[in-house]
Design a protein around this nucleic acid. Structure first.
Length: 423
RNA sequence: CGGAGCGUAGUUCAUCGGUAGAACGCUCGGUUUGGGACCGAGAGGUAGUGGGUUCAAUUCCCUCCGCUCCGACCA
């Protein structure tokens, strides 16, 4: 990608009023743009990062048998009426009217915009599941969620419209559900490890989804809006809604460690929903004994756009973003220092072409601007490796990591070898 | 939904009861060429909206809208 053509340009100043790091840096560097409070465009750079996040999620979902599909975002009232979740939480502990966007069309029919898909999946499952032989089922999709947040905030971390990967599983027995639930929990842990996060798995309440306990993957971040408590020795952890002890106490699980209190960002949430939805919506299968029984059901969510923001919150410095290589929008940022000598430009083009031929993704700063501006933008955008060609470097290429001040000179061949080793 | 701050050029802001200014960005010309470089010329604004006070409102008052933050709530 030639940076002279990259849309849009970077912005030198911080957006007015912005406080959170992800808001300031993602906007300045040209990854996201705000339409209104809680609603963002993923610009070409931002979309590249989200695509990489999604790829990691997709690989781990497929690895546990998840099948990708895509469900509608416009939902009829009737399907939400079946579980009673169309209504208010005042009348029903799982009522969701407060977070659901509901409206009428020109003929007076009522609809909601998707804030989750349990009811939609249930409608799908009951059409095709007859026998215990049809179970288990595990399906997922990546799509937009709309939630009428009382207050959108923290940049892209809490929007009224955001991307979510949601996985749904249906099982013949509770044991099978819980076995799969553990599999998904492990898959989520793999995903967040691969993304480069330091995280904890905590117990939580189920909100508008279930009255059962659930688990959250929480990224440790000082700027996070959640508070969690976890053991410094074993894996025990709870979020602040359900924790009933105090910081510094003995761990209730291993009895050895101490309870640590920390700020965090919730990036994943898994729910062992049980048979409540199946009973309400008549999702029944015939078991070996010939009896009709409700399916056991679980749902599992990760917000890729929130992950995007969380990555910036945990990995940046005063100059800009620092992407981990596995999610960076490009593998390398090639800077051509402006020169009167045409061979600098032609060498830069050669480097760009050779790297591209090797399937290494390059952002080539071919703009007609000063070196200082290029270096500043390079640090702001945060691609892991910076390559420079200039009058000074001659036939060699300068290599600098985003996280390191050390500068090394290599031949183009050596650069390609090193980059291929990193892939 | 309660509380606070803010809303003026593309962006970040200044100004002021007498009809608007800077920096950066943008356009043109020239110089420069390793950390947002310099010189010259230029384009660009119904001061968020509606109302009120006033001879006169961008400025003072009120309404509404919008953005950010705190709280409640929440992935």
């Amino acid at each position: 990608m030639r940076q002279s053509r990259l849309f849009p340009r970077t912005i030198r100043r911080e957006p007015a009023g912005a406080e959170s790091v992800n808001h300031k840096l993602l906007v300045r560097a040209g990854f996201i743009d705000q339409l209104m409070a809680g609603s963002w465009t993923l610009l070409p750079l931002g979309w590249r990062v989200v695509a990489r996040i999604n790829r990691i999620i997709r690989e781990e979902m497929n690895a546990i048998g998840g099948q990708e599909m895509l469900m509608p975002l416009l939902h009829p009232r009737s399907v939400w009426g079946e579980t009673g979740r169309w209504g208010s939480a005042k009348d029903n502990p799982l009522g969701a009217k407060e977070v659901m966007y509901q409206f009428k069309d020109i003929r007076g029919r009522e609809y909601a915009l998707s804030f989750t898909h349990e009811e939609i999946v249930m409608d799908l499952l009951r059409k095709s599941i007859q026998s215990f032989k049809d179970l288990p089922v595990s399906v997922y999709h990546f799509s937009t969620k709309f939630r009428n947040e009382p207050r959108a905030r923290s940049g892209i971390l809490r929007g009224r419209e955001f991307l979510m990967k949601d996985l749904y599983s249906a099982h013949a027995t509770e044991a099978d559900l819980m076995e799969y639930y553990e599999k998904v929990k492990n898959a989520y842990s793999k995903i967040f490890s691969r993304l480069g996060f330091t995280y904890r798995v905590t117990e939580a309440s189920g909100g508008v989804f279930t009255e059962n306990r659930t688990h959250e993957h929480q990224v440790l971040a000082d700027t996070g809006e959640d508070t969690i408590f976890y053991c410094n020795t074993c894996e025990w952890g709870q979020n602040k809604e359900i924790f009933e002890g105090k910081e510094g106490e003995r761990c209730p699980s291993c009895k050895k460690g101490k309870i640590i209190k920390a700020r965090s960002i919730e990036v994943g949430n898994i729910f062992p929903l049980g048979t409540w939805y199946a009973e309400k919506m008549g999702v029944l299968y015939t078991d070996r004994d010939g009896k009709r029984k409700p399916v056991w059901f679980g749902s599992y969510g990760i917000g890729p756009t929130r992950v995007l923001g969380a990555l910036v919150e945990v990995s940046h410095d005063e100059k800009g973003i620092i992407w981990f290589p596995q999610v960076a929008p490009f593998a390398v940022h090639l800077i051509e220092v402006k020169s009167q000598k045409s061979k600098v430009k032609s060498f830069a083009e050669e480097v760009y072409n050779k790297l591209s031929e090797e399937n290494i993704e390059v952002l080539w700063d071919d703009r007609d601007v000063g070196a200082g501006e290029k270096f500043a933008d390079c640090d702001l955008i945060g691609i892991p490796v910076r390559l420079v060609v200039s009058e000074k470097t001659g036939e060699m290429v300068e290599w600098k990591d985003r996280t390191d001040d050390r500068i090394e000179l290599f031949s183009l061949h050596r650069v390609i070898d090193r980059l291929k080793e990193m892939q």
